[in-house]
């Protein structure tokens, strides 16, 4: 019964009820106070249509808007040992986990998927701030390693959306060890010559910023995202002076040379398509309404999709259906 109530039901709920029937049809912008109709807000990727304030967006909702036709295949992440330190603060760690799983409908704080953006095959990972502050523990480490391994296997770029309060306290030193672990993952990509693009979203702090989130080939942030190692409160307590306006916000970091770009969420997809295609030496993406790609089902499908992408993108070639291209590519991939 426990398993059904704690795991299955939230999963089912997350699939149906949350999107279809939001409890409130109207949401107030935290910044300007405008009442926003839920559908309008979600169509605009949770960016306020009045003031442009970027509200949190779940990895799943982000991926649905990000991948062509909203189609992506989740990559399985190896499960780490549950509660490795048998940690207990005011609550037991497993109880905190269950509560987070129930409230988010997700298993953990990171979602990894493969799919295409503008017909460009990629691997993407997104961190979920609503799941225990997006905190980095063994699972998030495993997720980033799985994402990097998948990207290397499929020869695809990795785009990572970071969002975290930092390390998962309840995993103590093992959360700290995710800094070197995820750095190894980044090195796998670099050695394979594959682009690794980080999109820092609000907030990205602590050990996450001090490892994989700052090691991208291209570093992009969403507007006004808080990005820091030590939080502003800690700094104010340490230096006992007021911090300047906008301190540690995306634009401030851009001014100080710590980022390549600050890009609104609504423009991110196009920008990421352009950047990845240029880094991969691919021709410009074809814009406009393309039919949704077929869902990826097995390991060979991405290869086929990659071929389809190239043929679709190259105007000189007649575009062939993906399935015709598959046998030709297959022997090489083995």
């Amino acid at each position: 019964m426990n398993w059904i109530t704690n795991y299955v039901r939230p999963r089912i709920n997350s699939i149906f009820s949350r999107r279809e029937m939001p409890e409130n049809l109207w949401q107030k912008c935290d910044e300007c106070g405008t009442m926003l109709f839920h559908r309008e807000l979600s169509d605009n990727l949770n960016v306020c249509t009045n003031c442009g304030h970027h509200m949190a967006i779940s990895p799943r909702a982000r991926f649905q808007a990000f991948f062509d036709g909203g189609i992506f295949a989740e990559i399985a992440v190896p499960d780490p040992v549950a509660d490795p330190l048998q940690f207990r603060d005011q609550k037991k760690y497993p109880d905190r986990m269950k509560a987070a799983q129930k409230s988010t409908g997700e298993k953990e704080a990171m979602l990894v998927a493969t799919g295409e953006i503008g017909r460009t095959p990629i691997v993407a990972a997104a961190q979920d701030f609503s799941f225990m502050g997006g905190s980095m523990g063994m699972y998030v480490g495993n997720a980033i390693i799985a994402a990097a391994e998948e990207a290397v296997k499929l020869k695809r770029p990795l785009i990572l959306f970071s969002a975290a309060g930092g390390a998962r306290m309840q995993e103590g030193i093992l959360s700290l060890m995710q800094m070197p672990r995820t750095t190894v993952a980044v090195q796998m990509l670099k050695e394979a010559g594959l682009p690794y693009i980080v999109v820092l979203t609000h907030p990205t702090t602590g050990g996450v910023t001090a490892s994989y989130a700052m090691l991208g080939d291209v570093q992009i942030a969403e507007p006004n995202a808080l990005i820091c190692f030590a939080g502003p409160r800690v700094i104010e307590q340490t230096i006992r002076e007021k911090l300047p306006d906008g301190f540690q916000r995306a634009e401030y970091l851009l001014d100080h040379g710590m980022l390549d770009r600050v890009t609104p969420r609504t423009e991110l997809r196009d920008e990421l398509i352009n950047i990845t295609r240029m880094l991969l030496g691919l021709p410009p993406a074809i814009r406009g309404d393309l039919p949704a790609p077929e869902a990826e089902t097995d390991a060979t499908a991405p290869e086929a999709a990659a071929t389809a992408a190239e043929t679709a993108a190259a105007p000189t070639k007649e575009s062939k259906p993906a399935k015709d291209a598959k046998p030709a590519k297959d022997p090489k991939s083995k």
Partner: peptide
């Protein structure tokens, strides 16, 4: 690592990330 204004402005997290990366 020092939690200070200048340290953050000059990329404390990037510097730590690069040092870990160099170790590897």
């Amino acid at each position: 690592a020092y939690p200070g204004k200048g340290a953050e402005e000059r990329g404390q997290s990037e510097a730590i990330a690069r040092s870990t990366e160099k170790c590897l």
